[in-house]
Each structure stands twice: as structure tokens, then as C-alpha cells.
């Protein structure tokens, strides 16, 4: 299930102007790899994930998932979008069950799986609530349970933990790492938090400011069975942080000057 991004660009036409969101970008993500994208906001990270998910097509270039071009909604991925995509007219539990229901799975087993995931994200008590009755962080956790419930081979996650408080973020990061290690899923993870990127990923890709292009790549050799709580105190962690920050910082300032 390699994911190949081949010379992909994206231009948007909005209000009579052409906006270049992404300069040519190429990368290969191996099956089972955990990759993080970091870059200033507006550099096209969400746009790239949307194209991997098949929500819209690249302006040029192509995306191959497991050898086949992604031309419509990519059903091999689970996508946790940056924006809230829980259906507001369904309760938390009904939302988590939705992917299973769409795939026509039996109710009993589905309910058990959903229960287990809701407990994992600490929302069991709120399963009969509607999304509008939850805080932003709770909605993110419900979306995470929904993402994991149907076991897609590839997870696309767009700033999934951005809205969580620091402690909960650590807990969720730990859970994600455990799931990744246990299942061997491919994970593409967008974040604006360098610490998060280094603690989780095997490879961190830094994007330039808009229009985004790949500026730098670091392989993070902190081992697979790492502990998100402790890994940040490893001496190598600081080296990675400094290298990546040196690449990222000028891009952020570039954005501000515009």
C-alpha cells in the first residue's frame, strides 16, 4: 500500500483569481510508515491530504495509492479532517457506528467495537450526546473513534489533536502510537506542533510557505516502541527539534511578511 505523490500541484480559482496552493510536490510513503507534515498555515497541507483522499483532483501530476491512481473518493483511507465532520444530527455513538453501518456490518459486533473505542477516547459517558453538546476537544476525540472504528489501512489526520489540552493530547498521542504499532497502518499526520511531529513520526516533512513545496525531510530515529511521555527528554530529540526548527522558522516569518 505505498502512497506515491508524483509532481502534484494544485491551483484554486477563487474570486476571479488563481491561487497556487501547492508547487510540484513528490514523495513516496511506504506501507506502515508514519509520516508527519509540518509547515506554515496556508502552505497546502490540508489541500494535499484532500487530494490523497480523492476529494478533489490535482491540477497537474498524479497520486497513486497501491499502484492505482486516485480519481474519486479514496476508500482505502480514513480521513480525520481539520474541520469538524461529525454529523450533527447523529449522537456520538451513531456517528462512530456510521462507517460500519455504511459497510453493512452487523449491529451487535459494531456496537461492541464502537463501545471499546469510545472508552478509549474517554467518551463512553457521552455516547448519547449530540456533537453540538460537546466541547471542541470532545468532538475531536469522537472523530478519532470514528476514524479507527472501521480499520482503514491508511490514516490521514489533519491536526487531529490541536484542540486538546496538553495532558489529553499526550494520552491520545500514546494511543495513536500504540494503534500504529499494533496494526501496521500507514499514517499521514499533519500538525503545527514540532514536538508532536518528532514524538510520533518516523519521518517529518517540512513545507515552505505558500505555495507549498517540500523544503526539508528528517528521518526520526527514536525507535518504534517509543514512549511519547519520555521521548521528548532524549538528547537526540533536541537535535531533531533544532534542525527542524531552523528549517521551519524562516517559512513562518515569510508568511507574516506577506
Amino acid at each position: 500500500m505505498t502512497l506515491v505523490v508524483d509532481e502534484v500541484t494544485k491551483h484554486f480559482i477563487a474570486r476571479g483569481q488563481e491561487v497556487a496552493a501547492l508547487s510540484p510536490v513528490s514523495m513516496t510513503i511506504e506501507t506502515g510508515e508514519f509520516v508527519a507534515f509540518v509547515g506554515p498555515s496556508g502552505c497546502g497541507k490540508s489541500t494535499l491530504l484532500n487530494m490523497i483522499a480523492g476529494i478533489f483532483q490535482p491540477t497537474s501530476g498524479q497520486i497513486l495509492h497501491d499502484g492505482t491512481a486516485v480519481l474519486g473518493a479514496n476508500r482505502q483511507v480514513g480521513y480525520m479532517t481539520q474541520m469538524d465532520s461529525l454529523l450533527p444530527w447523529r449522537t456520538v455513538e451513531q456517528n462512530v457506528l456510521l462507517p460500519l453501518q455504511i459497510q453493512g456490518q452487523s449491529r451487535g459486533e459494531s456496537a461492541e467495537r464502537a463501545d471499546a473505542l469510545l472508552r478509549m477516547v474517554n467518551l463512553a459517558k457521552f455516547k448519547n450526546h449530540f456533537p453540538l453538546e460537546l466541547s471542541g476537544g470532545m468532538r475531536k476525540r469522537a472523530a478519532l473513534a470514528q476514524l479507527l472504528v472501521y480499520d482503514p489501512g491508511t490514516l490521514l489526520m489533519d491536526e487531529p489533536f490541536g484542540a486538546l489540552d496538553a495532558q489529553l493530547k499526550l494520552v491520545m498521542q500514546g494511543e495513536l502510537l500504540k494503534i500504529w504499532e499494533d496494526t501496521g497502518k500507514t499514517v499521514v499526520f499533519v500538525t503545527h506542533d514540532l514536538t508532536e511531529a518528532i514524538s510520533l513520526a518516523q519521518r517529518v516533512i517540512v513545507f515552505t510557505g505558500q505555495p507549498g513545496a517540500i523544503k526539508h525531510e528528517s528521518r526520526i530515529e527514536l525507535g518504534r516502541g517509543r514512549d511519547v511521555f519520555k521521548v521528548r527528554f532524549a538528547p537526540e530529540f533536541h537535535d531533531y527539534y533544532e534542525t527542524l526548527w531552523a528549517e521551519l522558522a524562516p517559512e513562518i516569518h515569510k508568511g507574516e511578511e506577506l
Binding site: A53, G54, I55, A73, N74, R75, V77, G78, Y79, T81, M83, D84, S85, L87, W89, R90, L98, P99, Q101, I102, Q103, Y150
Partner: peptide, 25 residues
């Protein structure tokens, strides 16, 4: 469109899209 995309990626066909997203919305 966010809901439509989300449900499509989960594998919904047109009929499911209608029933799960468009009608309730």
C-alpha cells in the same frame, strides 16, 4: 460538502449519501 466528502470516503454509495447526509441535513 464536508459531510458529503466524509461519508463518501467511508464508502457510501449515492443512496446511502442521500439517506445518511442529504435527507437529515
Amino acid at each position: 460538502q464536508i459531510y458529503i466528502n466524509a461519508v463518501r470516503i467511508m464508502g457510501a454509495n449515492e443512496w446511502q449519501l442521500l439517506r445518511v447526509v442529504i435527507l437529515p441535513s
